[in-house]
Amino acid sequence: MLTIKILGHGCQNCQKLEKVTRQAVTDLHIEANVVKVSEDADIFAYPILSTPGLVINEKLVCAGRIPNAGEVARWVKESLAVN
């Protein structure tokens, strides 16, 4: 199963990113484990300078902005194609 991580300390932007991501996952009819990561040490395990960050199967795909559901869906599909 796909693991999607939302990196951020829980401000409005992270919440929006989580909503967009869950929307994209629902629209694609796939099963994914969406987790929020808010501990500094866990966030900096990825090369990130600005939050929110989006990690799909351990790959950082977006940082410092809120992508739209279409973009998230594309990254999810790309990630599924790789596996």
Binding site: H9, Q12, F44, I48, L49, S50, T51, R65
Partner: peptide
């Protein structure tokens, strides 16, 4: 630089 103050911590550390 696009930057929101919520990101001040990761940016500062980085």
């Amino acid at each position: 630089t696009p930057f929101c103050s919520c990101s001040a911590v990761p940016l500062f550390i980085g």
